[in-house]
């Protein structure tokens, strides 16, 4: 179909058989549009580009090996102390929204107004800057606006990052991925298997889980509304699990805590009868992990 000659050799520039479209000729591809030392894309120029690519790739791999991708601890929605931080290229937007004149009741300016105008102008730049002149110093308005935007983005990013560092310092927080890496390193140095935060704490089985009296009390007294329907507590809110509580406290201590409360836990002495508290603390004292 193509050229008749079956024993084609790969033919280089000068002998190209890109067919000339009949009728209208599409814009450049012949080499007369830019007089000078033009060269073919493949293989001449692409080989050079690959060399640049190789240098970039080596640099990139060195970075990757020197700085492993960060990984903190598993997401815990109840963690209220975590300082959120977006990736660095969103910091300028994040910072912008902290100023009072683009947040609160003016937040529409911050989320739609200013970014909308800025990104809209960028998107439509060729239709706003329609002059024939291409040199940046001959189109002062476009160039000045771009430089101004770049400077503001740089400034906002820097302020945001400095504030984040300041927050970390004030609250004495070390970013989680660093803590984690540090712990893993220590574990590796002492020859232990690093503790994996991905592994959920092993569930302690309930002893005598089907005790109807106890279940009724747990429900009616509201134990489960804080300690959880599965009685695992809430680690984030520092509410202890009731599973395995028998390992930590005796029946007397449990009775005392239920009756008079402890820490954030309210007293149940006037809500439950002494008999009910007895049943409950009896049952709780039996909750030993070893009893399985």
């Amino acid at each position: 179909m193509a050229h008749g000659n079956k024993n084609e050799k790969v033919v280089y520039v000068g002998d190209s058989r890109v067919r000339k479209p009949s009728g209208e000729v599409s814009i450049p591809p012949d080499y007369t549009s830019f007089p000078g030392r033009s060269e073919a894309f493949i293989p001449n120029f692409l080989l050079k580009e690959w060399m640049v690519g190789c240098v970039v790739l080596v640099g990139f791999l060195v970075l990757t090996i020197a700085h492993p991708a960060p990984l903190g601890y598993p997401a815990d929605p109840t963690n209220s102390a975590f300082i959120p931080i977006p990736d660095w290229y969103f910091l300028f937007l994040y910072q912008l929204l902290k100023y009072p004149w683009v947040s609160g009741s003016y937040v529409a300016w911050g989320v739609v107004g200013i970014p909308g105008v800025a990104f809209g102008a960028l998107l439509l730049a060729p239709f706003l800057d329609t002059g024939k002149e291409r040199r940046f110093y001959r189109r002062p308005i476009a160039s000045a606006l771009m430089i101004l935007s770049l400077a503001s983005c740089y400034y906002l990013t820097k302020v945001s990052w400095d504030f984040y560092q300041h927050e970390l310092e004030v609250t004495g927080t070390v970013p989680e991925h660093i803590t984690r890496e540090e712990k893993a390193r220590e574990a590796a140095l002492s020859g232990e298997e690093a503790e994996s935060p991905a592994k959920p704490a092993e569930d302690v089985a309930l002893v005598d889980a089907d005790n109807a009296d106890v279940n009724a009390i747990l429900k009616s007294a509201g134990c489960i509304s804080c300690h959880g329907t599965d009685l695992k507590g809430q680690a984030g809110a520092k509410i202890p699990a009731l599973r395995g509580v028998g390992d930590l406290l005796t029946k007397e201590e449990l009775t005392e805590i239920i009756t008079n409360g402890k820490g954030n836990m309210p007293a149940f002495g006037d809500k439950l009868s002494a008999e009910e508290i007895g049943t409950l603390s009896d049952w709780l004292a039996k909750q030993k992990a070893a009893a399985e």
Partner: peptide, 30 residues
């Protein structure tokens, strides 16, 4: 390659990409 080219005429497709001009002013070698 020739077997495929006879049927589909693929040469112009890649030659178009391969042979396009890379002018002097964008070539860091110059």
């Amino acid at each position: 390659y020739n077997w495929i080219d006879e049927r589909l005429d693929v040469t112009p497709l890649w030659r178009d990409v391969a042979d396009h001009e890379v002018p002097e002013h964008v070539n860091p070698a110059h």
